[in-house]
Simulated scan of single mutants.
Amino acid sequence: MTRPPTAAQRRVIDAADPVTGRLRGTEAQLAALVRHGLAFRHPRPPHDHFLTPAGHRTRETVPEPAKTADPHTADAGDTGVFAARVGGEEDAGAGGPSRAREVHSAWQGLLELRRMTNPDGGTDRPCGWERTHLVRAAALALEAAGHHPAGPQGTDGYRVRATPQPEAVAVHGPDDATLRDCAATLEKTGWQAGEHTDPRTRARYLLASPRRV
């Protein structure tokens, strides 16, 4: 797309489902987003429209003037969308029923995105969105299963971090039991996970990647 979306198109983009990217708008608005490569129309009924990777990037940029935070996305951070906790955040320990509902809703939305975008409709393995948002996807799988992210000091709970490998994240934990529990959760949700030892620090960690089959 060579020019920014119009104000009306931006409102449609900003209102997309935080995880699945499902869009709601008029036929004209949705068709315009498709033409500009910001959305695609799903080939299977009910033929809903979803953000493309370019559409997700557009939503994550802050327009001028800066947009007002959506009160329905309390844990949105500076992007205005739901974000799974990867560990180390200042509010990593904050929880309660509100956070639990948001995490549950995000996980269900991700399962629906798997169903809609995996070629066979399977929900047992990660989809394309997860492969381009590895850290957030792995963290959501862990948080949705009840694991706790580490606090700012990183002394307890899990921490998910990017790695130099193109399709792998590192999961750190305070002890071997935490790592084993995280590995079991990730494998149940469609990831491959194996324990490794850092050659410099001798610390144990998981290397996890999305399963393809």
Rank of each mutant, 00 (worst) to 15 (best):
R35C: 09
A184C: 06
A184M: 10
V12L: 09
P126E: 02
A7H: 07
M116K: 09
R161L: 13
P4C: 12
P45W: 10
V171D: 01
G173Q: 01
D91Y: 02
K67Q: 11
S209A: 07
L111P: 12
H147E: 14
P4N: 09
P43K: 00
E89R: 14
D70G: 04
R180G: 01
Q192H: 14
M1Q: 08
F40L: 11
V169K: 05
R115V: 03
W107A: 09
N118W: 07
S105P: 03
R85L: 13
H36E: 06
H42M: 03
G190Y: 00
V12N: 08
V171A: 02
Q108W: 03
R159P: 00
Q192S: 15
A184F: 12
P152Q: 04
T26N: 08
S105T: 13
H104R: 14
V171S: 01
P18F: 14
A69G: 04
H42N: 13
A203G: 10
Q108P: 00
A92G: 01
E195F: 08
A162G: 02
R44G: 11
T117N: 06
R35T: 14
R212A: 11
M116D: 02
H147K: 09
A66G: 15
G77V: 09
A28D: 08
L140M: 10
Q192I: 07
V213W: 11
Y205N: 01
R59I: 05
D75R: 15
R159F: 06
R200F: 13
T58G: 06
F82N: 04
L134V: 06
S98V: 13
G88P: 13
G37R: 03
P63F: 01
V34K: 12
T52P: 14
A16E: 03
E167K: 13
T163Y: 06
D17M: 02
P166C: 01
P126Y: 00
D70H: 05
L113C: 00
T61N: 05
T73K: 04
V34T: 14
R44A: 15
V86D: 06
A76D: 04
Y158N: 05
G109W: 11
P63N: 00
T123R: 13
E64I: 11
P119D: 12
A8D: 07
V19K: 01
R115P: 01
G146Q: 09
T123E: 11
A8T: 08
E60F: 14
G93K: 01
R161I: 09
W129I: 07
Q29N: 12
Q108I: 01
T123A: 11
Y205G: 00
E130D: 05
A193I: 04
F82S: 04
R99M: 02
P18G: 15
H49I: 03
L134A: 02
D48W: 10
H148A: 12
L207C: 06
G173T: 02
A39S: 04
P97A: 15
A162L: 11
A28R: 13
